[in-house]
């Protein structure tokens, strides 16, 4: 029946070995997509989802890995405030909210800093949010 299949799937040694092998490459791919979001397809949201998948795979290796959910959501709130602050800096330099804070006339090499920073923070924030969602799902049935 279906329930027995799922239980054997969770304890399979082959799956644990493959997850251990794949985990660093998935982390690397996620960070690559986040950092290169301004030149190649991808960006903060997509890379964050891939990072969350990589962390989700560690549940096959060790189910009791993440215990402190309150810390995760605290970091997520701080990152959201940080994104808001970075977006609002342009009010002091350009008098407009939510655009690039480096002036339009400067070269494209400096404008990239804004894009990379915002992509990075959005990626970490999305990854933390999705990790919190499925850790809640895993904890729910364990009580």
């Amino acid at each position: 029946m279906i329930y027995e299949e799922v239980i054997t799937l969770k304890t399979s040694r082959i799956l644990i070995c493959i997850s251990r092998l794949l985990y660093p490459f998935m982390l690397l791919f996620g960070f690559y997509i986040i950092i290169n979001g301004h030149t190649s397809p991808g960006g903060g949201f997509q890379g964050g989802a891939i990072l969350a998948t990589a962390i989700l795979i560690t549940y096959f290796i060790d189910p009791d890995r993440i215990t402190n959910l309150n810390l995760l959501i605290k970091i997520e709130k701080v990152l959201f405030i940080l994104i808001l602050v970075i977006g609002s800096i342009s009010f002091f330099t350009k008098n407009v909210f939510f655009t690039n804070f480096i002036s339009i006339e400067s070269s494209t090499t400096y404008k990239k800093i804004f894009l990379i920073a915002l992509n990075f923070f959005i990626g970490i924030k999305v990854a933390l949010g999705l990790v919190t969602v499925f850790s809640t799902f895993i904890k729910e049935g364990r009580s």
């Binding site: 301004h38 030149t39 397809p41 991808g42 960006g43 090499t109 404008k111 990239k112 894009l115």
Partner: peptide
């Protein structure tokens, strides 16, 4: 204007 080769990100 934005320094991004990927127009979606821009």
């Amino acid at each position: 204007e934005t320094g991004s080769k990927n127009i979606v990100t821009g």
